[in-house]
Amino acid sequence: MQDIAIAVLESFDRYDPSQPFAAWAIGVARNQVRLYFRTLHRDRLRFSDSIIDLLSEDFSKISTSELHRLEHLQTCVDKLDARAKELCQARYSENQKPAQIAQWLGGSPNGVAKALQRIREQLKDCIQRHVQLDGGSL
């Protein structure tokens, strides 16, 4: 996502002041969102342009308070049990897919995928609890 901000800044010289800026910035941002979905994770299948356009708009509505929630992520990761941490490490640090993780750590690819899903849900709930403890409304 940092590519988006950098692209907006680096493209600024090409901005034509006679054109509405917001439309131009959204255009740059959309290109970057497309790039994100198409090239960053080559192991994923690609969305169609119409879906990427919809998602670009949705990404544009993320509020700063939603981002602040993520400040609790590290705390929540620290609370995971050893097996969950191992799975996260393999998926996010080693960038391994469930099938590779299953070969490495044991179990079935489907089992690993389900476990990763549970871990993300667990992290989401943990973040939500922390936000509530902080008195947030999200």
Partner: peptide, 28 residues
Amino acid sequence: GAIRWRSVVVVLATSILLLMGLFLLSNR
């Protein structure tokens, strides 16, 4: 760990401030 994590949030926040706020005021 602290620096790494702060960097994540900061990178995201900066990016999305730029992307998501719908930004540069139209008549700068």
